[in-house]
Amino acid sequence: MDTPFFTAWFEEITDVVAVQREHLTELDAAIGDADHGANLDRGFKAVREALAAKPPASPGAALVLAGSTLIRKVGGASGPLYGTAFREMGKAVGDAPEVSPELLAEALAAALAGVQKLGSAEEGDKTMVDALAPAVRAFSQAVRDGGDAPEAAARAALEGAAATIPLTARKGRASYLGPRSAGHEDPGAASTALILEALRATGTR
């Protein structure tokens, strides 16, 4: 996977977030503050502009630029969290001109570690970690087994996001609702699933 692949991934994320904007906002309205779709839409459009304005020289540079742009443009919790995820991925791949599946597995693990360090969420807290953690595991497992890693990660993320529905939130704004947060899908887990589905779609194009 080369630099154009990662640029195409961000294109794909931008498109899918724009399409799912209202859906994400509705999920957020149920247990948060009804802005997740709007914020990510704004953030990834800014990422697309930043990548076009300053075409990155390597996959790592593309990921770091995307992450920094999200931190600078989004605000809320999702800006720093997604921004950190992409920055950590970028740092993990370094200046490699091509990213192997093994290296991408490491980078995804670094993204998860960065998110957990910043947000101190564990699996089961009803956050983006509930989609990201199983996706990272599935990706690595598929790489080891010679399977379709992006496909496995996208499926695991989707299942992880769906599995947040019965959970009671213990982090973020939904935690204020206590037991009333149960019965709703976590918007951050849902957007994480979209981002990993975009990774799968980018690989099949």
């Binding site: 009804a34 914020n39 809320g76």
Partner: peptide, 11 residues
């Protein structure tokens, strides 16, 4: 000031 109900960004 951030966006409506969204914290400002670090910059």
């Amino acid at each position: 000031p951030g966006e409506i109900f969204t914290s400002p960004v670090p910059d």
